[in-house]
Amino acid sequence: MNLGDFYQLSAILTGYDEARLQGSGVGETYYEVLTTLIPSHILTQLQDTFCTIEALPKKALDSELRKQILANAMLGPVARNILKMWYTSIWYPMPTAWSKIYAVPNQSEQKYQDVEFIISDDAYIQGLAWEAVHSHPMGAKQPGYATWSFTPHDIASATAKRNPAK
């Protein structure tokens, strides 16, 4: 799997567009973790499958992505791990049952092992879960004094729509 396809697949999996993902600055590290730990023939198959469906219209894409990737016993756990990296900044070890059937993730003395770990300081800070909550990572990207007393932004924007004069 090449980096470009990794970003395209990630955008569909996360619901954030490629520009947003690239802007996080940690995508290449996630790609490195993935390609270090998951044997390349599996990633190639994931890429090939994705390339056959990525141009489909939204609804069909969702249905095929679920069928051919998420519900696929070999590809599903890999795709979900990519998604979890983006949202939580954590690599979760591949399920034992998966490793028994498809491949043992690389466990040699290298930079990354197939154990649960937070990928880096930056990854923690860039975790998409925080953005999805409409907040900021605890301990970073501080919004400033007194911001916690502001009206949450979706309520604020709904009110603005109802009362355009204000």
């Binding site: 569909i12 996360t14 619901g15 992505l65 998420l70 998604l83 949202y87 879960a129 999805a132 979706d154």
Partner: peptide, 10 residues
Amino acid sequence: YGEQLKAHIA
């Protein structure tokens, strides 16, 4: 996953 996941969290 994707938009659904994002919307559910939000």
